[in-house]
């Protein structure tokens, strides 16, 4: 078992620029079922990927869904059009929309999030590495080979820190059920709590690693959820203990402002909720192992 994506996921790609095309090809090579692509001026064409896979291009998400029965979309559309691409996918009823694009204006995401309210769709990202269920489905930009099917769920705001955790789990033989990057932006679709709830209900997931960073209160909310509802051991890590206040640390959302969003507050909340925090990122896998008992 897994969450969000598996071998039955039928993926379309929104945005066939250099990055979108490159990663679509890697996803196909990983075994992901890529069934179509969307490009407003290339509808009707066929995109031929390495390995002989040919994928039809549609003008709209609606047309793509009707023709391919896709149930997931990955958005690589550049920042200025990314929120519109998300809303287009939502309007078409796409159940899962994974947005990789970095640099989407905050106001656009505020509107997109409002637009998605009440619709039966789930947005992951933006500004995230994507979602992967090892050996079944890769949506995004993560290196597939570091993953291994297993029993730990991973959820993180950071790309490379997710890879660190995943690689440690693979080396320890624990593997992953699914790894989810929720992204480093201040306004995003799916948050820690949503993903923790999915892992909580996934029989194959025996423990979860959650990786947070400074900025906002999503980690505190997650700690509250873990304390009240989580039936599985959780390990974690928080980045940004040494980050100076008022500065954006690479990610748009990684900022301590007005005394809010400090690493210290998150570490305290997570520790109080019984989450086993790794003292350094090198120890995330070990912290999970300890938490499993």
């Amino acid at each position: 078992m897994s969450i969000l994506v598996d071998k039955d996921t039928r993926l379309i790609v929104q945005g066939l620029g250099k990055t979108g095309r490159f990663h679509a090809e890697l996803s196909i090579a990983y075994g992901t079922n890529v069934v179509g692509a969307v490009h407003p001026s290339r509808g009707g064409e066929i995109e031929a990927f390495d390995g002989g896979v040919k994928v039809p291009i549609f003008r709209t998400v609606e047309e793509a869904m009707a023709a391919t029965e896709a149930n997931a979309s990955v958005v690589f559309v550049p920042p200025a059009g990314a929120a519109d691409a998300i809303m287009e996918a939502a309007a078409a009823g796409m159940p899962l929309i994974v947005t990789i694009t970095e640099g989407v204006p905050v106001a656009d995401m505020v509107i997109a999030k409002r637009y998605l309210e009440g619709k039966p769709v789930r947005l992951i990202g933006p500004n995230c590495p994507g979602v992967i269920t090892p050996d079944q489905c890769r949506i995004g930009i993560m290196p597939g080979y570091i993953h291994q099917p297993g029993k730990i769920g991973v959820v993180s705001r950071s790309g490379t820190l997710t890879y660190e955790a995943v690689y440690q789990l693979t080396r320890l033989g624990l593997g992953q059920t699914t790894a989810v990057g929720i992204g480093g932006d201040p306004v995003n679709g799916t948050n820690f709590v949503d993903v923790l709830a999915l892992f909580n209900d996934d029989p194959a997931t025996e423990g979860v690693i959650m990786i947070g960073e400074i900025g906002g209160t999503a980690e505190e909310d997650a700690a509250d959820y873990v304390a009240k509802h989580m039936r599985k051991p959780v390990a974690g890590f928080i980045a940004g203990t040494t980050a100076p206040p008022g500065r954006r640390m690479g990610h748009a959302g990684a900022i301590v402002s007005g005394g809010k969003g400090t690493a210290q507050a998150k570490i305290e909340a997570m520790t109080a909720a019984g989450i086993n925090l790794a003292p350094t990122p090198t120890d995330m896998g070990q912290a999970m192992l300890e938490a499993l008992g």
Partner: peptide
């Protein structure tokens, strides 16, 4: 490489 890894 990466903001989260750079912070940590």
């Amino acid at each position: 490489n990466g903001a989260g890894l750079a912070m940590s």
